[in-house]
Amino acid sequence: MEYKDYYAALGVPKTASAADIKKAYRKLVRKYHPDVSKEKDADAKTKELNEAYGVLGDEEKRAAYDELGSGLGNGMGGAPRHGQPFRPPPDWGSGFESFADSDSDFFKDLFAHVGGRRRGFQARGEDSHATIDIALRDVYEGATRTVSLRVPQQDESGRTITRERTLNVTIPKGMTEGQQLRLAGQGQPGSGNGGAGDLYLEIRFAPEPRYRVEGRDVYETVPVAPWEAALGAEIEVPTPSGRVTVTVPARTQGGRKLRLKGRGIPGAGSAPAGDLYLLLEVVLPPAETPAAKAFYEQMARELRFDPRAGLK
């Protein structure tokens, strides 16, 4: 007997979701249905598709098929290949009830004793993935946030429904954008007595116009008055780690960058803390009153400043 790769028959990877498997099956069945297909082997192909989906479209049959394939191997460190000589172990499926509803010898031999439930069968639940938006300051001291997830579950009748689940999540100090938090046992439920999968939450920083983050370095735009930039000044600046006092050097031009070493995102593990860069932006007071307009006119007369003097 030759091994049948049901995943290859449907053209999906072994990691495909149930929805992807169903979608692939429906597409191929429409293509090869004997009533509409002009392919010579349409009838045989349709039977092959039905057989493959009969296994992969059923959660427990698929788990049993995957368990057998991963356990046997092909002698070269991998699962058995399509068309390779194959025979299930003598004791395979001894705890199953029958559902051998296919003409395929492979299907019959593989699932001759497999029923709607296998006594003692266990399969770990799938891992779940989601994103969580947090404020930049949350990773400076750590924080606890509440997240709500919509997860599929089975009700008392065995139907799959969607329920909302709320979790309190601890954000460790020093997380960077794109890192993942692993919450053990908070993924999809397992089959039988199999444990639940894990939930992975990808960290994403909520947009904040004043800040830009690159790795562990943080860039903050800081507005300064013209006289602070021209004459120099001590100014107080709010940062994600608290307020700091910095010196604006005299004759500062817009775009000047001040580096505060170690005041970026805190270090974690062997990773050192990042730096905080203050990007100085000169902001002009609006000429909205007669006095302000007169002051600007006086500056134009007395300073005779041409910002474009160096342009050619």
Rank of each mutant, 00 (worst) to 15 (best):
F111T: 13
I203K: 01
L284N: 13
L68C: 02
Y65E: 11
L278K: 09
P90W: 07
A294K: 12
M175C: 03
D41F: 00
G54I: 00
P89F: 04
G83F: 06
S157A: 14
R137Q: 12
D105N: 13
E60S: 01
G187F: 03
R304S: 12
N74V: 06
G178D: 06
G120M: 11
K38T: 13
E288T: 14
R256T: 14
S98F: 09
G190Y: 00
R137V: 09
R159G: 10
G95N: 08
R182N: 02
E208A: 01
K27T: 15
T15V: 07
A19Q: 15
L278E: 11
D66E: 04
G194Y: 02
M76E: 13
S102V: 08
E208H: 00
P285S: 08
K293D: 08
F205Q: 00
P88Y: 03
H129K: 14
E220L: 10
A291T: 10
P240G: 01
G267H: 04
D103W: 07
K23F: 07
V29K: 06
D133P: 08
L183A: 03
P223H: 04
R87P: 07
G178H: 02
R210V: 05
G195V: 06
A196H: 01
L280K: 13
T162W: 03
G174Y: 02
R117V: 15
A268W: 07
G115R: 04
T245L: 02
S104L: 11
L183S: 02
P290A: 15
A230Q: 14
E220I: 02
L49H: 04
D103S: 15
R204L: 10
E59V: 01
